[in-house]
Design a binder for these strands. Structure first.
Length: 354
DNA sequence: TTCCAGCAGC
DNA sequence: GCTGCTGGAA
C-alpha cells in the first residue's frame, strides 16, 4: 500500500474526509431498492447476494424486475437450491452471462448443504463460493453484515478517480483505487459508506455530465478543480472487435415444429436454447447442407464481449421421419417458444423470421 | 450504427 | 490475460 501511495502520499485526503461528507448525504438521498434494507432494518443476506450477482453484469433498472421475479419464485436460498437449472436459466434469460446463473445455483446449493442455509459473514469464506469474487465478497460482507471491508465497483472507481484526478488509466489504476477506497473506509457503517459511493456514482458523479453542483464531495474534488471531471477515469485504448459471419438454420417440419438445440453448458450461450448455428463455438462442425434451404433477406446483428456477429438465416423444411436428431436437438412447437430459455440472439432471429 | 459499462472463472 | 452478453446511451 505504501508503494501504491508513494507519489500520491502528500496529496492524500484525511482518511475520514470523504465519509464525513458522504454519509449525511446518503442518509438524506439514498435510493430505495428492493434488496436494500430500510434504515434501521437488518439486510437480508440472500437478497444482497442475489442482487450483487445480477448487478455484476448490468444496471439497476434492468435488474429490478429479474430480482423481484427470483424472490417471488424462490423466496429463500434453500428454495433456490432446490430449483432446477433449467428453471433458473429460464428466469435468467435475457440477463446474459449464463455461466453466472449456473454459479448462482451451485452457490445456493453450497449455502444450503455446507452452511445450513446461513450465509457466511466473513469475506474470506464468501470468496470461496462459486460466482463470488473479490468485489462481491467485499460487497456482501459490508452491506449484509456491516463488516469493515471495501468493495470497489465501477461507480466507486469513477468517483475516486475524479476526487483524486488519477492520471493512471484503468484498468491499471485498480490497485491504487482499491487502496484509496480502503484508506477512506470508516470503521462503522462500512456498508453504508460503500453504498453511498455507489449511489453518488449513479446519481451525481455520472459518467457523462456529472452534477457537480449537487455533489457532497465537490469541495475537495481535484478533477472538478481542474475543470474536467468528465474526462475521468482515464482508460486504456480498447482494441477493435472482429466481425464473424455465420449461418443459422431455421428448420421446420410440416406441422409448425421448429428444430431447436440446447447448447453445451460451457462456453458461449451455455445451456440456452437456439436454432443451430454451426461454428458459433470453435471446433463445431457443420452437419447441415445448404441445399434445399433459402436464405432470408438481411442479417441479424449481435455483439458479444469480444466480437460482432452477423447471422444469415437459412430457412428449410424437413420431414421429421427422415431427419436424424443429434443428441442435444429436439422438435418444439413454434407456438410454445416462450417456455424455453432463449438468449437475446435467438429472440432477434425469431423476430427476423416471423 | 457504434460505444460502453460491468466482474468472475479458467 | 482471455472469455462471457445485453440494454441503453451517444
Amino acid at each position: 500500500m505504501t508503494t501504491i501511495f508513494s507519489d500520491l502520499k502528500k496529496d492524500l485526503l484525511d482518511p475520514d474526509t470523504i465519509q464525513k461528507h458522504l454519509l449525511p448525504w446518503y442518509d438524506a438521498n439514498q435510493r430505495t431498492l428492493p434488496w436494500r434494507a430500510l434504515p434501521g432494518r437488518e439486510p437480508n443476506p440472500y437478497h444482497v447476494w442475489l442482487s450483487e450477482i445480477m448487478l455484476q453484469q448490468t444496471t439497476v433498472p434492468t435488474v429490478i424486475p429479474y430480482f423481484l421475479n427470483f424472490i417471488r419464485l424462490w423466496p429463500t436460498v434453500q428454495d433456490l437450491s432446490h430449483a432446477s437449472l433449467d428453471d433458473i436459466l429460464h428466469a435468467w434469460q435475457g440477463l446474459g452471462y449464463y455461466a453466472r446463473a449456473r454459479n448462482l445455483f451451485k452457490c445456493a446449493q453450497e449455502i444450503t448443504t455446507r452452511y445450513e442455509g446461513i450465509f457466511p459473514d466473513m469475506e474470506s469464506t464468501l470468496l470461496t463460493l462459486p460466482g463470488i469474487g473479490p468485489y462481491t465478497a467485499a460487497a456482501i460482507a459490508a452491506i449484509a453484515f456491516g463488516k469493515n471491508t471495501s468493495p470497489v465497483d465501477g461507480n466507486i472507481e469513477r468517483v475516486l478517480s475524479r476526487v483524486y484526478a488519477i492520471k493512471v488509466p484503468l484498468p491499471g489504476s485498480k490497485p491504487l483505487l482499491q487502496a484509496l477506497a480502503r484508506h477512506h473506509t470508516p470503521l462503522h457503517r462500512a456498508g453504508d459508506y460503500a453504498q453511498a459511493l455507489m449511489d453518488l456514482g449513479s446519481r451525481i458523479c455520472t459518467p457523462k455530465k456529472p452534477i457537480c453542483i449537487s455533489c457532497p464531495l465537490r469541495r475537495f474534488c481535484r478533477a472538478l478543480e481542474k475543470g474536467d471531471p468528465e474526462n475521468y477515469p482515464l482508460r486504456e485504448a480498447s482494441s477493435l472487435k472482429p466481425t464473424r459471419f455465420l449461418d443459422a438454420f431455421w428448420i421446420e417440419d410440416g406441422s409448425n415444429f421448429l428444430l431447436l438445440e440446447k447448447r453445451p453448458l460451457s462456453g458461449l450461450l451455455g445451456g440456452l436454447v437456439m436454432v443451430p448455428i454451426p461454428l458459433l463455438n470453435k471446433n463445431e462442425t457443420n452437419p447441415f447442407f445448404k441445399e434445399g434451404s433459402s436464405p432470408l433477406k438481411g442479417l441479424v446483428s449481435h455483439t458479444f464481449t469480444h466480437f460482432h456477429l452477423k447471422v444469415r438465416v437459412l430457412k428449410a423444411r424437413a420431414a421429421r421421419g427422415n431427419f436424424s436428431l443429434l443428441e442435444n436437438q429436439f422438435w418444439h412447437p413454434l407456438s410454445d417458444l416462450s417456455d424455453q430459455a432463449l438468449p437475446t440472439l435467438m429472440k432477434k432471429i425469431v423476430r427476423h423470421v416471423t
